[in-house]
Design a protein around this nucleic acid. Sequence first.
DNA 1: CCGCGGGCCTGCGCGC
DNA 2: TGCGCGCAGGCCCGCG
Length: 277
Amino acid sequence: MPELPEVETVRLGLEPYLSGQCVKRAQINRYDLRGGIPKDTASLLNGRRVLSTERRGKYMFWHLDNHRSVIYHLGMSGRVRIYDSISAYKEEPHDHVILDFKAGHRVVVNDPRRFGMFYTVLTENIDKQGPFLKMGPEPLGNGFHDSYLADTLKNKKTPIKTALLDQRVVSGLGNIYVCEALFAIGVHPTRLCCDLNIEEISRLVEAVRDVLTKAIAAGGSTLRDYKKADGGMGYFQHHFHVYGREGDDCDVQGCDGKIMRMVQSGRSTFYCPKCQV
DNA sequence: CCGCGGGCCTGCGCGC
DNA sequence: TGCGCGCAGGCCCGCG
């Protein structure tokens, strides 16, 4: 469940092994990730230098020196491992992409469930490209503020939980951080967007920023599939108030509620029925 | 145009 | 013990 903080943590971990580094040889072991890895991907990577890395929503970009960029999405189970030398490499099931760099290190993209995406596009075309065309603002950037969110939500009749998962509303949020942000402001996940008042929207903006900032600082959340690029764990899962805590007592002092789970649009929502109204 | 639900995919944990 | 089922969920697509 890599969401923005996990993707950002992976990107930061990869940065010293990618930026300024020259690809000696790229190897694709299987092409059937989500959407398919284009057949020319290895040849477009061979010999190229990575200029910089970037993240947008849950997507990562590796900008190359041939006017192309790798677009990588971790999907549900994407993981990247780094080896200081090829001889240190231990093959694991689902190692789909292997990049050897001239400096000697190896970067391996592994993805058991193959929900991830890995392809290159012309850098200048990224914005015109599928998911980025309608992508909402970065929640930690300047474009995500009270009046933007108020305008975006005012005519929506969907539950606020569902809207926050929509990458066109705001990019990078997933189930964990949406549940946590709504808990933080005491808003029930089934509340309709158009029924939130400006004060609640303002607190929501703050809460989204706050939970993401803290999660990035903790190195993301390690559950099931996700690990950092260095193989280490993130620690934010220890700060969850509601996510995955069905039946637990609510953390809030003086609240005797129990955390509940419900299904919205086919996904689990965790909330405290006493704190969230 | 918008919202909802199904499909994709594998690993894991639980219950019988 | 072993097997099968349900669940995890980001994103895309098709339907109403």
